[in-house]
Design a protein around this nucleic acid. Structure first.
Length: 214
DNA sequence: GACCAGGCACATC
DNA sequence: GATGTGCATGGT
């Protein structure tokens, strides 16, 4: 019988052996990563990319430009990402925090300690635990394990945790059983997403799954 | 045409 | 605290 750290490490090794490094997050700057994290809420990444291209083409993928923009124009630009009205508000809320508390720069946010950044991100309407942790891990490069629907599905199917367990329960499982390591946390989460896109979408048990037999 | 996609807030019980 | 619902586009 394997211990939990062994199990989680083996799972990571199997995914990494099958898919290789994912080099996440797909974004060029910390600010772009944060914008992408908000836009991808319950949304296919391909649609998010279209929205980000629109922002880049309009030369407005920067805090001040988005802050000055009307709701209507921003919503129109991010339209392909879906939920465009609510996401336009969420982007504005995030940028409000960035400007008011961190001098409008992601590097200002990065200098803050982990606990206070997470707390202030979570205080923003429209930023929940997954979005906050994605920003903290991939844009601010601080070690936190990101939990998403895929992570919950894989772990519950492998009877490691109940699907209805809380975000914090899933997160503390990884964070207590694995070495605190930014590249490990980054790759592991990305590999769960890759696995889901690859073959574990609807079937309870996937044939040819890298995790088969675990 | 149905179903899904890297959530979150809010109403109601 | 648990459960249900609105938000919306684009690909399969």
């Amino acid at each position: 019988m394997k211990t939990m750290p062994e199990k989680l490490t083996l799972m990571y090794k199997k995914l990494y052996a099958s898919f290789g490094p994912q080099h996440w997050w797909p974004g060029e700057t910390p600010f772009e990563i944060a914008v992408g994290a908000i836009l991808t809420q319950n949304t296919n990444w391909g649609n998010v990319e279209k929205a980000i291209v629109n922002l880049k083409d309009a030369d407005v993928l920067k805090p001040a430009a988005l802050n000055d923009m009307s709701h209507e124009r921003l919503a129109a630009l991010i339209r392909p990402a879906g939920y465009f009205n609510i996401k336009a508000k969420r982007l504005k809320n995030f940028i409000g925090l960035l400007i008011n508390e961190y001098h409008g720069s992601m590097s200002g946010m990065k200098q803050e300690d982990f606990n206070s950044v997470r707390k202030s991100l979570l205080s923003v309407n429209g930023i929940g635990p997954e979005t906050a942790d994605s920003i903290i891990l991939y844009a601010l490069e601080k070690p936190v394990f990101v939990i998403d629907a895929y992570t919950k599905r894989v772990l519950s199917r492998h009877n490691i945790l109940d699907h209805d367990a809380s975000y914090e329960e899933f997160q503390s499982l990884f964070q207590s059983k694995l070495k605190e390591d930014i590249s490990l946390f980054s790759e592991y989460h990305a590999l769960f997403v890759r696995l889901a896109k690859e073959n574990c979408r609807t079937k309870p048990v996937c044939t040819g799954c890298p995790l088969e037999g675990m």
